[in-house]
Every structure is written in C-alpha cells, then in structure tokens.
C-alpha cells in the first residue's frame, strides 16, 4: 500500500506543472453550460476533457526519459500501475467534485432547463466516459509508446458516438428501451448507480491487463 501511495505521489509531482491547463477546461465548461442552460453539463464537459489530460502523463514520461527513474527506484511494477490507476481515479473524483460545485454555483444564476433524469445522465455519463477512456487507453499506454497511442486518444469518444448512432438508426432500440428509460426517469438515482458501477467494472477489468503489459514491456 505504501508503494502505491508513493507511486501516486510521484505521478502527482510529475503532472502538477500541467494542472493550470485544467482552468481552461473549466472556463470552456462554464461557457457551454451557460449557453446550453444546463449548469451540470459542466461535469460532463470537464470529465470528457480531463480524461485525455491525465493521459498526457505518458507524454511527460517519454519526454523526460522517466523509464530510467522508475528503473532505479525501489518500486514494484505492479505498484506503479495500480498507483497510476489510483491517481487517475482520484483526479477524476476531484474533477467530478469540483465540476459539481461549479454546476451548483452556475445553477444560482442560470435557469436549469434539464430534468433531474437528464442531469443524472449527463453527470454519470461523464464519469462513465472517463472510466471507458482509461479502461481502453491505459493498457495501451503501458503496452506501447505514447506517440503510437496518441492517435487513438479520442477513439473511445468516437466509438461511443458511432455505436449510439448505429443502435438508434439500425434498431428500434429506443422503442424497446422505453420501459427501461421510463424506469430510470422515475429513479434518476439508478442512473448514477449504473453509470458509476459500469465505470468501476471497466477500470477493474483493465487493471490486470495494464499490469501484465507493464511487466512484459522493456524500457526503450
């Protein structure tokens, strides 16, 4: 456990110079939320932007040849991977919390036109997207170099959009899902449970893969 915490702390030290970039994401989230008259859209926007931001860790890793630092530190490879996931997760939670507060603040000034159901979908969907992003890309980052993976950074987003469009267009999924949608509309809290639950399952499933890739990878 101590090693995981040390690994997280090191990740934080490596990334902290880039944190001011997050301010730009929040500014964009404010503008779009106000325009859309949906204060909690800020959460989804922040999550969608923060996920690839955390992925830039691997760019810093390569630019600064940190394989050498990690190669000399008394730190197990599994601890490095678990620490990276934990760091990404904590960053996600911190940004969810901050953007929720931002959403609450905006709702004081902007009339929220979104229903509780839609708000839940936006917030839980943002979290789920970030989890999908990490579950898909972190194993790749541990397997191959950042420059090779960078091109796939937005792939989870495209996949989600394309899969959604195809489902709607090719099937009568909206009709068949009506009872399910009605259930979630009546129980918006379940949207959170399902979104966060699936997100955690995705992260949990990709962690062993990342550990296996990192253990087998040789530094450049």
């Amino acid at each position: 456990m101590r090693d995981i915490l040390r690994s997280m702390a090191l990740d934080h030290r490596i990334m902290k110079r880039n944190y001011p970039i997050l301010a730009g994401f929040y500014a964009l989230a404010v503008v779009l939320s106000v325009v859309a008259k949906a204060p909690f859209l800020a959460v989804a926007i922040t999550m969608v932007l923060t996920a690839p931001f955390i992925g830039t860790y691997f760019s810093l890793y390569e630019k600064n040849r940190l394989d050498r630092l990690y190669g000399s530190l008394p730190l197990g490879r599994s601890s490095v991977v678990v620490g990276r996931y934990a760091y990404a997760f904590v960053m996600m939670l911190a940004n969810v919390a901050a953007s929720l507060l931002l959403g609450l603040f905006l709702s004081l000034f902007v009339q929220d036109t979104a229903t509780p159901f839609l708000t839940s979908v936006i917030v839980a969907g943002g979290f789920l997207y970030a989890c999908l992003f990490f579950a898909f890309l972190l194993p790749l980052y541990f397997k191959v170099s950042f420059s090779k993976v960078y091109v796939f950074v937005n792939l989870p987003f495209y996949l989600v959009v394309i899969a959604g469009l195809l489902l709607v267009k090719k099937t009568d999924i909206l009709t068949s899902l009506q009872p399910t949608i009605k259930y979630f509309m009546d129980n918006p809290a379940m949207v959170w449970v399902v979104g966060i639950g699936i997100g955690l399952v995705l992260l949990g499933a990709s962690l062993p893969l990342s550990i296996a890739f990192h253990k087998s990878r040789e530094s450049a």
Partner: peptide
Amino acid sequence: EERRFKQDIAVVFDEIPFVDAW
C-alpha cells in the same frame, strides 16, 4: 529481491532521469 536491492543501490545515467521542469 529487486525492490530490496534497489533500496541499497544508486544509479547515475548518461542523461538526467528527472522531469525537466522540476
């Protein structure tokens, strides 16, 4: 015993292995 022996060794590389902004 990799983790243990790395407590007791130090490595100096040909290039610095630290973040350049540190």
